[in-house]
Design a binder for these strands. Structure first.
Lengths: 112, 112
DNA sequence: TAATATAGTTACCAAAAAGTAAGTATTGCG
DNA sequence: CGCAATACTTACTTTTTGGTAACTATATTA
């Protein structure tokens, strides 16, 4: 498949934050640094496995920083990097557009 | 799953354009109105089935208009609605961010 | 009359993503 | 000693997504 390799910059962005789990994680971490357990409780419906996977990918992508404390029971804190925080503008744009769209659709339904 | 129902506006947006096929279709139709076959040839790697599915969903979502001509062989033209065109700003934001990110990553690699 | 072109649809199969549930590691505490 | 707490990891299963290839419908054209 020719489109498998991510070429276009839009696809780059999409591959980094184009799914709901990453958006949820981003939203939580934009608030503040959080621990693994906090994230798990905050994002209802996500499994440990998926949360770990997404966080690891985001770490690899340079969006998230993972800090492990040498304690028992273990403590791991996740925070956004500068690049990660810069995604806020994208989320804001999507938020604004989505809100607008929902309002339009709502009005449309009432007209029927 | 509590997050299945799309609540947050960001998710609304993501559900409408959060995958590569829809982005590709949007890119083609932002150029101009195109026929089914044109889209199929322009978007390398997409199958007829998937193209149809995505177009139908986008039509349902009010992003795309489907115009059927009563001809044989059949002619069907797809174009963006006003709402569909308004997604350009989102794509542009993603394009800009993605380009920036790629440039950063590229520089980073050279530093190693 | 038979082939052609276009825009699909359908049945079947493969791959990817995500959930479930159980297991791991470690140290402090009772 | 044995249990609690936290952050995972792993094996297995389910769900979702998408591909392939064959089939359809029909006016026009040779």
């Amino acid at each position: 498949m020719a489109n498998k390799k991510i070429g276009c910059p839009v696809e780059v962005t999409l591959s980094l934050v184009g799914d709901k789990w990453k958006v949820f994680i981003l939203k939580e971490l934009l608030e503040r640094t959080k621990r693994f357990g906090e994230l798990h409780r905050a994002i209802s419906g996500i499994s440990q496995k998926t949360l770990t996977q997404q966080l690891r990918q985001m770490e690899k992508d340079g969006l998230v920083k993972r800090k492990v404390y040498a304690e028992v029971p273990p403590r791991v804190e996740y925070s956004l990097t500068k690049i990660g925080r810069s995604l806020k503008s994208i989320l804001d744009a999507m938020h604004k557009w989505g809100g607008n769209y929902a309002a339009l659709k709502c009005k449309e339904q009432q007209d029927e």
